[in-house]
Computed example of a mutant assay.
Amino acid sequence: MSKHAALTLFPIRELVQRTGVNASTLRAWENRHGLLRPHRAESGHRLYGQDEVLRVRRVQELVAQGLNMSEIAGLLATDAPSGPPAAPVQTPPRAGAGEEFIAWQGYLEETLRALEDFSSERLDALYNEACAVYPIDLLTRRLLIPVLERLGERWDSRPSGIAEEHFFSAWLRNKLGARLHHTSGLPKGRPLILACLPGESHEIGLLLFALGALHRGYRLVYLGANVPIRQLADVAIRSFAAGIVLAGREPPDAERVLADLAWLAAEVRVPVCVGSHFSVRERDALLRDKLVLLGDDIVLGLDLLEARIAKTARNPARAA
Rank of each mutant, 00 (worst) to 15 (best):
P135M: 10
L176Y: 09
V274F: 06
M69S: 02
A170W: 00
R94W: 00
L143C: 10
D79K: 08
R141C: 01
V21P: 08
Y127C: 03
F168S: 06
R190N: 14
T8W: 06
A225N: 04
S276C: 13
R13E: 13
D117V: 02
S160Q: 15
P84W: 06
A242M: 02
S157H: 13
W263C: 04
R142M: 11
V89W: 00
A266T: 04
G74W: 05
F168N: 06
V53L: 10
G224F: 02
V89H: 02
G185P: 04
L287Y: 00
A320Q: 15
Y222L: 03
A317E: 14
L305R: 02
D124L: 11
V133H: 12
S2D: 14
D156C: 12
I102Q: 07
A87K: 03
P11E: 11
I298Y: 14
A259W: 01
V16N: 06
P228I: 00
L112D: 07
R46D: 08
R122I: 02
V245H: 12
E164H: 02
L220W: 03
A114P: 07
L211V: 11
V235L: 08
P159S: 10
G217V: 12
E109M: 05
H202A: 04
L123S: 06
L207D: 07
R179D: 06
D234M: 11
N315P: 10
L108Q: 10
H33P: 00
R40M: 07
E121F: 12
R269S: 12
E153H: 13
R150Q: 14
R58S: 09
R57D: 05
C273F: 04
E116C: 07
E30M: 02
I72R: 00
L223H: 03
S279R: 03
G161V: 09
P191I: 13
L294P: 08
Q50P: 09
F118V: 10
Q231S: 11
K175D: 01
I72M: 08
V63W: 02
P191D: 13
E109S: 13
R308D: 05
R179K: 14
I136S: 14
T19I: 12
R122N: 08
E203G: 04
Q231C: 00
I136N: 10
A225R: 14
G243W: 09
A130L: 15
H182E: 03
I12L: 07
L302M: 15
L36T: 02
R219G: 12
R158D: 07
L232I: 14
C273V: 08
N128C: 12
A285L: 08
R27W: 06
Q60C: 02
T91A: 09
I145R: 15
A28D: 06
P271C: 05
D253C: 01
L305A: 04
S239Q: 11
L126F: 07
W263D: 12
R269G: 02
A317I: 09
C131G: 12
L47I: 10
S160D: 15
L232N: 13
A114W: 03
G96P: 01
L304H: 15
Q231T: 06
L138F: 02
A5K: 15
R141N: 05
G161N: 11
R46F: 11
R190A: 15
T78W: 06
